[in-house]
């Protein structure tokens, strides 16, 4: 276990390869749930939570079921089933044991199953490797899921803050709504492009 690896993963998945702005994962919720700051924060927290648990669960499935039996080609089916049931399970568990958290995050959970960032991070955890060819281990995968979620939240909250102000701006009629949201994200992505000079991999 190398502590520096964790730092590299964190910087990489929050800034350099931000899941939304650098890798184009999770665009649908990024555009859909970024109208209000409050719901953006809620969605971000739910995504962090699910991405961390999904990384843990899919890594375990890969290492103890798919790899030993040599059935890696079933990865897509296995992962999406694990994620869908995990989200369902979290929803039921939260409803029963953490009603206050459920009322804050509950409405976002069903949306997360079809968030490509979650399946994306699960596959990236298995596919990515370090310079010396070693794969991510269990802790690095979980950490990658967590920081990926943080990166998603950073992008979502930035976007929501800007869109709340855009509501009051005097825009051309034809740019209102989705078009200006995309142009705004282009500008944010451009700013994040500045991080790409920062290479530590």
């Amino acid at each position: 276990m190398d502590f520096s690896h964790l730092v590299v993963i964190a910087v990489s998945s929050i800034f350099i390869n931000n899941f939304v702005l650098g890798r184009f994962l999770g665009i649908c919720p990024f555009i859909g749930v970024s109208k209000k700051l409050e719901s953006a924060v809620g969605m971000g927290m739910a995504v962090i939570f699910v991405m961390t648990l999904a990384s843990i669960a899919t890594y375990t499935v890969q290492k103890f079921i798919l790899d030993p039996f040599g059935i890696q080609y079933l990865q897509t089916i296995a992962f999406i089933l694990v994620i869908a049931s995990l989200v369902q399970f979290i929803e039921m568990f939260m409803k029963k044991n953490m009603p206050s958290l459920y009322s804050a995050l509950g409405i976002f959970l069903p949306l997360i199953t079809t968030n490509c960032a979650v399946l994306g991070v699960a596959i990236l955890n298995i596919d990515s490797s370090w310079a010396d060819g070693t794969r991510y281990n269990f802790i690095e995968s979980a950490w990658n899921g967590f920081t990926g979620g943080v990166g998603f939240t950073v992008a979502l909250v930035l976007m929501a803050g800007i869109r709340e102000r855009l509501e009051l701006a005097d825009l051309p009629e034809s740019l209102k709504g989705l078009p200006i949201a995309f142009i705004t994200s282009a500008l944010i992505a451009m700013a994040f492009l500045g991080f790409s000079g920062m290479s530590i991999m």
């Binding site: 078009p179 995309f182 282009a186 500008l187 992505a189």
Partner: peptide
């Protein structure tokens, strides 16, 4: 080169949607 990088994708999408709305 920026049009190939992520910002270009967002920008193109925004402009095409804007054109559709117009």
């Amino acid at each position: 080169i920026m049009m190939i990088l992520p910002p270009g994708g967002f920008l193109t999408m925004g402009l095409i949607l804007g054109f559709m709305q117009w």
